[in-house]
Design a protein around this nucleic acid. Structure first.
Length: 490
RNA sequence: CGGGGUGUAGCGCAGCCUGGUAGCGCGCUACGUUCGGGACGUAGAGGUCGUGGGUUCGAAUCCCGCCACCCCGACCA
């Protein structure tokens, strides 16, 4: 018999790791720092992909695919970009193996050294902008709105499943525009889409804002982000959208003739979310009994468990349940009817709770007589017995309610763990309790660095909804025009 | 890259100190009884003990090298 997973209060990160394993989402692979995403976990990712992809398409973007490998020279064309990524790149140096002469196995053939090393993409700005140079000549070629679903590699020192793996899956949008205004609009539009996705699909409230210069993407003029709060009070950057200015256009010489017949550099954006969102989803909602999934992303929204003593009883239950399954599917609800006799009902209950299935129906002899069914919701762990008639409508409403309830719960939690703080002492005390801290900052990188050094807290963002408020920096005592969001982060 | 730890059945572990025919729980297979919150019985299957060398009559156990992974730091989405 499987035991309970470690509790969140006991050991949050062990709870997280164990939950991923037990809910069958993913596991560590034979390759250092790289995960295997298992079918159940991948099904969630596919739902995320679908929703996001639809949103990208609705806003005029098209998908394309660019190479996994990037010539080393490309990476160095944008100075701050190479500086940001150089320390974590996987490099391909050879193209052939051969049998070792001593028979000990295969070795890299020293004869097969590449003229120019290839970098496994940590992100694709460089290879994409080198391509855009050929695609863009006139303002009529703009805007160019491209997205790519891909894997990337960043050779991280320490990895954690979904949150930080050496290889991860993501989408990266790369757009080119005729004017700065247009590019800035795009940057903001895509951030808003991420926020909408997080809130409506993941039931995850996010703070939208701007990164400070320190936290900005390597090669961007401006980085916008959404920040979410996990149940341990730490912040998690859930998505970023960058205004690239003309940096990459200049680095890769991407120019166009504008309407005034003048040659100008193209304005760019890039934006991405990754399988890290899986980590956010898990940490934001789940509890000590297992995963809690928002219905909109749950691979199985409703599971039906028959309770029977004999084959005949199972048959009469199935006779009622199978049409219900069809009806629910027709209504767009994903249903699993678990009539396998491999496990007892109690085992199934626990298993589907672990996997975060939002709604569970149980039907046995009693229900057969009464024309009822037991319906349980995962988020609140409540059960009720309802009439079998009109179930589809009831379930659809219930799924909507669960989606909303999970969101509200997360939002209430965030509000309860967000504090305004005005002194550095108070700041340090509050920080150890976890949560977001709204505090004044003098706007300098030096102060930000000093606070990070002293407390490990970073400025998550300068929120868009920042109120104008005169104050003094909690650390330096210098004047400040508004509060920013500080937190310890993943 | 620094500090700590672990490699024994699919998974989780014991055995190692004190060398002598490799064990437990879960899972798996078959059959039967069970089935409204993680069932039980009976019978089975499954391991070159991470790897290379050394000591020894004999090594999972002692010695040396190597490799891998995990945790804690520095780095990061």
């Amino acid at each position: 018999m499987a035991k309970a997973i470690p509790s969140r209060s006991e050991n949050y990160s062990e709870w997280y790791n164990e939950l991923i394993k037990r809910a069958d989402l993913a596991e560590n692979s034979a390759v250092r720092g790289c995960m295997v995403i298992k079918p159940y976990g991948f099904a969630i990712w596919e739902k995320m992909q679908r929703a996001l992809d639809d949103m990208f398409k609705e806003t005029g973007h098209q998908n394309a695919y660019f190479p996994l490998f990037i010539p080393k020279s490309f990476l160095s064309k944008e100075a701050s970009h190479v500086e940001g990524f150089a320390k974590e790149c996987a490099v391909v140096t050879h193209y052939r193996l051969k049998n070792a002469e001593d028979g000990s196995g295969v070795i890299v053939d020293p004869e097969a050294k590449l003229e120019e090393e290839l970098i496994v993409r940590p992100t694709s700005e460089t290879v994409i902008w080198s391509t855009y140079k050929n695609w863009i000549q006139s303002y009529r070629d703009l805007p160019l709105l491209i997205n790519q679903w891909a894997n990337v590699v960043r050779w991280e020192m320490r990895t954690r499943i979904f949150l930080r793996t050496a290889e991860f899956l993501w989408q990266e949008g790369h757009t080119a525009h005729a004017t700065a205004e247009e590019a800035k609009f795009e940057t903001r539009q895509m951030l808003d889409i991420y926020a909408q996705f997080a809130e409506e699909w993941m039931a995850l409230p996010v703070v939208k804002g701007t990164k400070t210069a320190n936290e900005r993407f390597a090669g961007a003029d401006d980085t916008l982000c959404i920040e979410a709060m996990m149940q341990d009070g730490k912040a998690l950057q859930a998505g970023t959208s960058h205004f690239l200015g003309q940096n990459f256009a200049k680095a890769f010489d991407v120019q166009f003739l504008n309407k005034q017949n003048q040659l100008d550099y193209v304005w760019g954006t890039s934006w991405g979310v990754s399988t890290r969102l899986m980590g956010a989803l898990i940490m934001a909602h789940s509890d000590d009994d297992g995963l809690v999934l928002p219905p909109k992303l749950a691979p199985i929204q409703v599971v039906i468990v028959p309770i029977y003593r004999s084959e005949e009883q199972l048959e009469s239950l199935s006779a009622k349940i199978k049409p219900l399954v069809q009806e629910l599917r027709k209504a767009g609800v994903s249903v699993k009817y678990d009539d396998s006799d491999a496990n007892k009902p109690g085992w199934k209950f626990a298993e589907y709770e672990l996997r975060g299935v939002p709604v569970r129906l149980a039907m046995g002899g009693r229900d057969l007589e009464n024309g009822t069914v037991e319906i349980a919701r995962r988020d609140l762990k409540t059960k009720e017995t309802v009439p079998f008639e009109g179930l589809t409508e009831h379930i659809k409403n219930l799924l909507d309610d669960i989606q909303q309830t999970i969101y509200t719960k997360a939002k209430t939690f965030r509000q309860a763990n967000t504090y305004k703080v005005d002194t550095f002492d108070e700041f340090q005390v509050q920080l150890d309790k976890g949560g977001f801290i709204l505090a004044h900052w003098d706007g300098t990188s030096e102060t930000e660095e000093a606070i990070k050094e002293a407390t490990k807290a970073t400025i998550r963002c300068i929120p868009f909804d920042q109120e104008a408020e005169e104050g003094v920096d909690i650390f330096s005592g210098k004047p400040s025009a508004g509060r920013v969001v500080f937190a310890r982060a993943y």
